[in-house]
Computed example of a mutant assay.
Amino acid sequence: MAHAPHASRSPLLLAGFLAAAGVAHFAVPASFDAIVPRSLPGHPRTWTRASGAVELALAAGLAVPRTRRLSARATALLFVGVFPANVKMAYDWRTRPARARALAYGRLPLQVPLVLWARAAERSATR
């Protein structure tokens, strides 16, 4: 069965999204440090760097057809796993100006389409 023309690009777009996010974790780590749940052990910067490295690795895995299926599945799990950080951000930003609150609150439902995008990339990968 032939895939729609966008089907093969979608995992690459997701890879680009993850790569940009991964680079951001290293370029501007303080903004990510701030949303690391305090219940996690160790220094927040360690979690920021680790999650950035994972995003870069998943981006690379999505870009390679042979590893795309596994990487897409792991990407979906990553998006679920970072949800507590988004909840923390929404809570911490609850008293900020409306625009900042909207950004923080908007991240919460955004996780659903991101997980679905990763699952679609998994399904589109050759087995």
Rank of each mutant, 00 (worst) to 15 (best):
A72M: 06
V115T: 02
P37D: 13
R38V: 10
D33F: 10
P97Y: 07
R101E: 07
A27K: 02
H25P: 00
R73E: 01
L58H: 09
A30V: 02
T95P: 03
A98N: 03
A27R: 05
A100I: 13
R123V: 03
A34G: 07
A121Q: 01
S124V: 05
G22S: 05
S124G: 13
R119S: 05
N86G: 15
G106D: 09
G42M: 10
L103P: 00
G42E: 09
L78E: 07
T67N: 07
M89C: 04
L108C: 12
A76C: 01
A118N: 02
G81L: 09
R123K: 14
W47Y: 06
A72V: 04
L78D: 07
L77W: 13
A90S: 13
R69F: 00
L78S: 08
A120P: 02
V115P: 00
T67G: 05
V23Q: 01
A85V: 04
D33P: 08
G106S: 09
G52Q: 09
A57Y: 11
A30W: 04
K88R: 15
V23E: 00
R96D: 12
S124I: 01
V36E: 10
L103C: 01
W117H: 15
P109V: 08
G61D: 03
N86V: 06
A63I: 07
P113R: 11
L70Q: 01
A90G: 10
P84W: 11
S31D: 08
W117K: 12
S39N: 11
R49G: 14
A50P: 04
L116G: 08
S31P: 00
G52F: 09
R73W: 01
P65Q: 04
A24C: 01
L103V: 08
S124K: 04
L62H: 08
A24G: 02
L110S: 15
A74P: 00
L103M: 04
R96I: 00
S39Y: 13
R69D: 00
A60M: 12
V28Q: 10
F79S: 02
P37H: 13
V54E: 11
Y105R: 13
